[in-house]
Computed example of a mutant assay.
Amino acid sequence: MWVAGAVVLVAGCGTERGVAAPAATSSRSSIASQVPSAYDPCTDIPESVLASEGLHSKRTATSRASGGVRWRGCAWVRTNGYAVSIRATNLTVDVVRSKGFAETREFTIDGRRAVSTRQFDGPYIQEACTVDVEMNGGSLEFNLNNPPSRRDTGSIDSCELARTLAEKVVPTMPATA
């Protein structure tokens, strides 16, 4: 199943399995032209954090969408559990919140504004969740896919899993990120 989850997570756009295309704002001026570079999730997340969640099999998860939206990061999988891409994006928390996605929730992590959303349509809406955490020039995005068939995590809400992971990762970011 990792391959199927990776397609949804790494692609980040399209309509496979009811995935909504990533949001872009109507005003390009509200989106930075580049992905923030002060924190690289592929190299800056401590191995101890990844190990605490049982995450392995890192893959590049970089993409572009219409309207100048960009992501740069990596994806991991947990055996018998969820798959997640953690990417820096030029989408800000405000832009994500303004899209009106289902189940939008605002909160803070380590003093940074954050928002969780269900950005997928159709029957798979509950197995996926995206958490965006404020960064200078964008956000750090946790795009988590947790099918109910997963033995270890399938019975846990995907937004709960994404937020728990974000709460482990975000404190490792420098204050300038």
Results as ranks from 00 to 15, higher is better:
A166N: 13
A88K: 00
A24D: 13
L144Q: 00
R28V: 10
P41E: 07
G54K: 10
G81V: 04
L91C: 13
K58Q: 15
D110I: 01
E16P: 07
T25P: 05
A128Q: 03
N143Y: 12
A162I: 04
F142T: 02
F107S: 15
I125R: 14
I45A: 14
S63N: 12
S149A: 13
A38N: 13
Q126P: 05
V169A: 06
A128E: 13
G12R: 05
L9F: 01
V93C: 11
N80R: 14
E53K: 02
L55W: 11
Y82K: 01
W71G: 09
Y82L: 02
F142I: 07
D132M: 02
V3P: 05
M1K: 06
Y39P: 03
S26F: 05
P123F: 06
K168Y: 15
R113T: 11
L161M: 05
T15A: 04
D44G: 06
G18C: 01
A6M: 11
Q119C: 00
V19R: 07
R72G: 01
E47D: 15
S158N: 06
V84D: 09
N136C: 02
Q34S: 15
R70L: 14
S155N: 10
S66I: 13
P123E: 15
S37D: 15
Y82I: 09
E134T: 07
T130K: 13
T62R: 15
T25K: 14
P22M: 11
A177V: 09
E103H: 12
V77M: 14
Y39R: 14
S85Y: 01
E53M: 07
E47C: 02
A102Q: 08
Q119H: 10
S27Q: 09
V169D: 12
L161E: 11
G68P: 00
S52H: 10
R87F: 03
R151P: 02
A166G: 14
T89W: 07
W76L: 08
V69D: 05
A23D: 13
L165P: 01
N80G: 07
A11W: 00
K99I: 02
P36W: 15
A61V: 11
G137F: 11
T176Q: 09
G138A: 13
V170P: 06
P147L: 02
V7A: 12
V84P: 03
E103Y: 02
T25Y: 10
R105I: 06
V96Y: 09
F142W: 00
C74K: 11
R78S: 06
V69F: 00
V170E: 13
